[in-house]
Amino acid sequence: MTRPLGIILAGGRATRMGGGDKGLRSLGSARILDHVIARLEPQCAALALNANGDPARFAEFGLPVLPDSIGGYQGPLVGVLAGLDWAAQRGADTIVTAAADTPFLPLDLVARLTACAAPNGLCIAASPDETGTLRRHPTFGLWPVALRDDLRAALADGLRKVSLWADRHGAGTARFSNDQGDPFFNINRPEDIDTALRQMADPDAAP
């Protein structure tokens, strides 16, 4: 099976981080985005960034930068649509998305999403929270290009919640374990960088 194109979602405003690009913050000897790219790139046929504003700030990564086609920072589904449109231009069938602030994303993300996908190719990642309840991670998904016009119409109608649109299309769920720390731990606040550094030093420690 052909590997999907990868889209790193970096289109948010990082308000809890004080603004700016979270992915460009240092985490150990590299930046957060370097860690994300290192883990996602081997799983994909090619990578692109979904980000708004001046794309030049990401030039050194050598990746295409895809802005939202709908203004106003209206959530990850808008970034998914940008990725699907880019994939359609390249003749690809699917994309996989990951958040730009998640330096421990699973090394088998694509394989697990693909294995658990619904017949239409749609799948969302999930893992247990601190109570053991399964929680979906809407920025980590496998998305078929064939649904991009449906998504565009849903966004035009005002839909913004990933789970609502995913459920509408019977998305599969790929379950991941937290046994070696949370693979979907995301850096939202400055203090989360210290937590991530501790997890890097001791991968078996939960954040």
Rank of each mutant, 00 (worst) to 15 (best):
residue 95 I to G: 08
residue 192 D to Q: 06
residue 166 A to I: 00
residue 62 G to W: 06
residue 197 L to H: 06
residue 162 V to N: 05
residue 47 L to A: 02
residue 88 A to K: 13
residue 114 T to H: 06
residue 152 R to H: 13
residue 59 A to M: 09
residue 35 H to G: 09
residue 95 I to K: 14
residue 168 R to K: 15
residue 52 N to T: 08
residue 119 P to D: 02
residue 78 V to K: 12
residue 27 L to S: 06
residue 199 Q to R: 15
residue 160 R to I: 09
residue 94 T to D: 09
residue 42 P to G: 06
residue 94 T to L: 14
residue 51 A to I: 11
residue 180 Q to H: 14
residue 141 G to W: 00
residue 187 I to H: 09
residue 65 V to I: 02
residue 148 R to N: 04
residue 89 Q to W: 00
residue 73 Y to W: 05
residue 43 Q to S: 10
residue 130 E to H: 14
residue 143 W to N: 13
residue 179 D to H: 14
residue 174 A to E: 06
residue 113 L to T: 03
residue 103 P to L: 02
residue 63 L to N: 01
residue 81 L to N: 01
residue 118 A to W: 03
residue 49 L to D: 01
residue 26 S to P: 07
residue 167 D to S: 11
residue 53 G to W: 11
residue 160 R to N: 04
residue 34 D to F: 14
residue 79 G to V: 08
residue 8 I to T: 06
residue 204 D to Q: 13
residue 24 L to V: 08
residue 202 D to L: 07
residue 50 N to P: 00
residue 173 T to S: 09
residue 198 R to D: 07
residue 41 E to Y: 00
residue 161 K to T: 12
residue 152 R to K: 13
residue 44 C to F: 08
residue 158 G to R: 12
residue 53 G to E: 10
residue 114 T to M: 00
residue 13 R to I: 08
residue 172 G to Q: 08
residue 117 A to N: 02
residue 109 L to D: 01
residue 79 G to M: 13
residue 52 N to E: 12
residue 182 D to S: 14
residue 125 A to L: 10
residue 87 A to N: 00
residue 170 G to N: 13
residue 152 R to T: 05
residue 106 P to L: 14
residue 142 L to I: 06
residue 162 V to A: 15
residue 130 E to R: 15
residue 77 L to Q: 00
residue 29 S to L: 09
residue 72 G to A: 12
residue 90 R to K: 13
residue 140 F to A: 14
residue 201 A to L: 09
residue 171 A to S: 15
residue 24 L to C: 05
